[in-house]
């Protein structure tokens, strides 16, 4: 008997003996593979896709809203030309922060690195849209009379600034496409993609059929 034969017969007996289990193994491997791909697709990939950044220092909306005179407008206001000031500049802070107000670490960082040196704070803007998008706060606040919560969530009640997550491929903020990878949206502020803007515009019976191509808003309503 050659070694080759021996090997073959051994192999035969092996396969015939285990045959009933093979299907189960295949199924098991399929399950493991499926579970792994789910873990990778729903867990690992989104974590890898976004890099986390921190704001230059923390800021407490709730606390400040108790002491400013004019609510949100003390820091986020409309200029006379109708444009929106957006993230605050030092000028909105130094009225009070020309000297230290408390002992917190974040105020110290703010005071020493920015106020004393007269540098503007490089805020990371969670809601920042791609460069080609035109957004108008005037249209939504003065025109549609929407409140900030509809699009930004409960910022006023927040005591901390959350970390900023940036998509490694596009460079855009995670708040545009949202956190929920199944694509479900529970709150109006969960994400702000093109379709989310369009969906709300369609709900209001204004500005929504000027495009000859799409029958919705013309591209040049929201783009520049």
């Amino acid at each position: 008997m050659s070694s080759h034969d021996k090997y073959q017969s051994h192999g035969d007996s092996h396969s015939s003996a285990k045959a009933p289990d093979e299907g189960a193994y295949i199924f098991l491997f399929f399950l493991i593979g499926f579970a792994l791909s789910m873990v990778v697709g729903w867990g690992v990939f989104p974590t890898l896709l976004y890099s986390k950044k921190h704001q230059p220092f923390d800021f407490n909306h709730k606390q400040h809203l108790q002491i400013v005179d004019n609510g949100c407008q003390s820091c986020h206001f409309f200029r006379t030309d109708g444009s929106f000031s957006g993230s605050p500049r030092l000028a909105q802070c130094v009225g009070c922060h020309n000297e230290m107000q408390g002992q917190s670490e974040s105020e110290k960082a703010f005071f020493e690195q920015y106020v004393v040196q007269g540098r503007e704070v490089p805020w990371l803007v969670y809601s920042r849209q791609p460069d080609c998008v035109f957004f108008s706060h005037a249209a939504h606040i003065h025109g549609a009379k929407l409140d900030c919560v509809t699009c930004h969530g409960h910022m006023a009640a927040s005591e901390n600034l959350k970390s900023y997550e940036q998509n490694r491929i596009t460079g855009y903020s995670r708040d545009l496409w949202g956190r929920n990878i199944s694509g479900l949206k529970h709150n109006s502020w969960d994400r702000m993609k093109m379709d989310d803007c369009a969906e709300c515009h369609a709900r209001y019976q204004v500005v929504h059929d000027s495009s000859v191509q799409t029958g919705r808003d013309a591209c040049f309503v929201c783009h520049k």
């Binding site: 791609p130 080609c132 000027s210 495009s211 000859v212 191509q213 799409t214 013309a218 591209c219």
Partner: peptide, 22 residues
């Protein structure tokens, strides 16, 4: 002729737009 809908005509302003990212 645009196969990508990158250029559009606005019936509201009469302006022909071009969306570069598209």
């Amino acid at each position: 002729v645009c196969p990508a809908t990158a250029t559009d005509y606005s019936a509201d302003t009469g302006i022909v737009s071009q969306i570069y990212t598209r």
